[in-house]
Simulated assay, not measured.
Amino acid sequence: MTMSVRTKAFAGVAGAALALLGTAAPAQAAPTKNDTSVSVGRLVLDPSDRGYHGTLPVTVRYRGTQVGYLQVTVLEPTPGSFDGVLPQQPCFFGSTSPNRTLVCEIPGGGLQPGENRTFDLAFTVLTTARSYPMVATGGRVAVNAGDGNPANDTAKFDALFRSTSGSLRNPRPYVRNLVTDATVTAGSATLVRQPDGSYLGSVPVTIRYRNDAPQSDVELETNLPAGVELRGIEPQDVCVGGWCAVPGGGFMPGEERTVTLKLYAEPGTVAGPLGTGTTTLHVRYDNQDLPDVDPSDNSAPFTVTAVDAG
């Protein structure tokens, strides 16, 4: 199993929060009333040159007798679409594959008894803008007062994708790909001797993404000949061991992106061919590698050669 190189707040969702979305919970005494209620507006996703973007207004009404520190639980209407709470708050992710559940702190701190509070949930779908409207159904919001009360309120919502001409009428169903169609290619690497006797060089790597499968992380796993080390990626992003996050965030369908892997060889390395390396593309969603249409083009070999400065 691979491990993400990015620090992500993926964690198990608390049982009480999952219970609000249909997971069985331990038997409890029947509550006399709801501690909270929740209502939502409409989620309209507007097209842009990088997918669709929109926000869902949420209003929470708190009826507790003491200050309440509440959480909101979200079930996405389409996989990988949740983009956070506004104003920004910590969120924890759990899987109800393919659509995720997310538990987030409600902005603004503790709620006073009887208080109403409104905030937004942001959504982004990295797919090509269409000339016709679309809809993704099944979104749900629940609010948790932290008291184990299963009667706390829930609200359903759909995601409406506005057409490029502005229409929302007669939307077609939107179904997101869950199998990637990505490729990676690599050039050769030439390492040049430095004044201290070490060798530095780089290898260009090009990633092409052909569909709209969601991506939590896109990473390159690189294996190198003996004596050659991976020293980073450009543009700069996180690298751990032989793994580097691909800079630039999620890919749009049809997007091509070239990055550079930085390589190093110790002083004393003999100039000449050093061997062949391989870089492998991993597209991860919900902390798991997604399958690819053709896994054979997800790895690319490249030669590594050391030369003395001319």
Rank of each mutant, 00 (worst) to 15 (best):
R6W: 01
A9Y: 06
F10S: 13
A14F: 02
L20I: 04
L21Q: 14
T23W: 09
A27W: 05
A27V: 12
K33S: 15
K33N: 07
N34D: 09
N34C: 03
R42W: 00
D49T: 14
R50Q: 13
R50P: 06
H53P: 01
G54N: 09
T55Q: 14
V58D: 06
V60K: 09
Y62V: 09
G64V: 04
G64K: 11
G64N: 10
V74Y: 04
V74S: 06
E76N: 07
S81H: 03
P87A: 02
Q88A: 13
P90R: 06
P90M: 01
S95G: 12
L102W: 07
I106M: 09
P107H: 02
G108W: 02
L111M: 13
T118W: 01
A122W: 00
F123D: 05
V125L: 03
L126I: 02
T128F: 00
V135S: 05
G138I: 01
G138L: 05
G139C: 05
V143S: 08
A151Q: 15
N152K: 08
T154H: 06
A155Q: 08
S165Q: 15
L168A: 08
P173Y: 01
Y174A: 11
V175S: 11
T180Y: 01
A182Q: 10
T183L: 01
A189N: 11
D196G: 07
V203I: 05
P204H: 01
V205I: 09
I207N: 07
R210D: 14
P214H: 02
P214R: 03
S216C: 01
S216V: 00
L224K: 12
G227T: 05
V228I: 15
V228D: 03
D237P: 05
V238K: 11
C239Y: 10
G242H: 07
A245D: 15
V246F: 02
F251N: 11
E256R: 15
L261G: 09
L261T: 11
K262Y: 00
L263T: 10
Y264I: 04
P267C: 03
G268A: 08
T269D: 10
T276H: 03
T279P: 13
T280N: 08
T280R: 15
L281F: 08
R284N: 14
R284L: 13
D289S: 12
S296D: 12
D297C: 02
A300V: 04
A300N: 12
T303H: 13
A306I: 04
V307D: 10
A309I: 08
